[in-house]
Amino acid sequence: MKNSIKNYNKWAAILLFFALPILIYVLSDFPRRSILKETISILTLGAFFVTMLQFFMSRAAKDKLKEHRMATVIKWHKVLGYIVAGILLLHPFLIIAPRFFEAGILPQDAFIELITTSTQGVILGIITWMLMLLIALTSIFRDKLGIRYKVWRMLHGILSITFITGAAFHVIELGRHINIPMLWLISVLSILAVALLLKLYFFKTSIKA
């Protein structure tokens, strides 16, 4: 029973956050570009889905994860967290990186043009990039912040909610691989993720600390 629930959770996570986006990617008529560009796209897309998965791999989903060893879950949360934070922080640079290998506008000029474009999607992107940086830094230097763990956890949660909300809008607005199925998947998953944390804060039912 215990193992089957664990398996069930694992498979649900893999299906929702990995198989489904890949399936949509494969079945849709997105233009197929060079291997480098597609790799970068899949990496970024994957990082975003894992970021949403992080909400479900936290104390917020404790009641769903009671068959798992929380310490293991949190360990994975940390490992995945640092990886995806790294990818997402690099993501603006990854967009322009292929220009190093092909004719066109210079990568540095492309980058300047990118970050100086004042459309909603770009501004959201810049704000959420900074939030991501903040989340990463406050996680790395948690011990040096001199705040209590519970306060940090609250801070981490609030930053994450703000981040994922902004990031979801940013992705839907600017994503290269956004179509109707992808849009719904991202919307549903991000709303669930936010709802899960909000539930934790407003109806402290799942916290048995």
């Binding site: 967009i95 990118l114 770009v122 691989h177």
Partner: peptide, 13 residues
Amino acid sequence: INNISGCIGCGTC
């Protein structure tokens, strides 16, 4: 022009 995706709306094109 087959497809425009990932447009940030800068208007350069």
